[in-house]
């Protein structure tokens, strides 16, 4: 079977790739486009480490066929900072020690950003339920939730 030719907007730039029909967006990001910031923790949508934005919606890259993305907009962790300026969430994760091993961090950040875009002033409970699809085994979630709430406050002030 011939490969699919897919044209996307990836982190703001036009990006084309060829993919096998059964390959996922995660496969293509990591293995073909060398964007390894999107992590594979489970490959079944249960851990959220591969969270990306697809046409402005939070999805798991492992549960998306690469071939589906033709004409679509993809945002990954590599596009989160504005050039050399970290996104407030990235900065707050650092300041709050909200990462230990850091493997869940890219997915957490993408997921948290999606939350704050919809809900600039979430409660702790709303943060916890929104992030329920992003597993972290190191932090017990305390400092992640604190960092998200603090980043939300900062974004509201901005």
């Amino acid at each position: 079977m011939a490969k699919h030719h897919v044209t996307t907007t990836l982190n703001g730039s036009p990006v084309e790739y060829l993919c096998e029909p059964h390959h996922t967006l995660l496969d293509v990001l990591r293995d073909d486009l060398n964007l390894t910031g999107t992590k594979e923790g489970c490959g079944s949508g249960d851990c959220g480490a591969c969270s990306v934005m697809l046409d402005g919606r939070l999805v798991c890259a492992c549960l998306t066929f690469a071939a589906e993305c033709n004409g679509r907009t993809i945002e990954t962790i590599e596009g989160m900072a504005n050039g050399t300026k970290l996104h407030p969430l990235q900065q707050k994760f650092l300041e709050h020690a909200a990462l230990q091993c850091g493997i869940c961090t890219p997915g957490m950040l993408i997921s948290a950003k999606a939350l704050l875009e919809k809900k600039p002033d979430p409660t702790e409970e709303e943060v916890r339920y929104w992030l329920a699809g992003n597993l972290c085994r190191c932090t017990g979630y305390n400092k992640i939730v604190e960092a998200v709430l603090d980043a939300a406050a900062e974004l509201r002030r901005a």
Binding site: R30, L35, T36, G37, T38, K39, E40, T76, I77, E78, M80, A81, L86, Q90, F93, L94, E95, A97, L99, G102, I103, T105, P106, L109
Partner: peptide, 21 residues
Amino acid sequence: TSPVRPDGVPKVTGRAQYGAD
């Protein structure tokens, strides 16, 4: 004191290289 970790920025920007990377 609790300063920002020295290896922090690559981990929040997706540039840190783990085993599979």
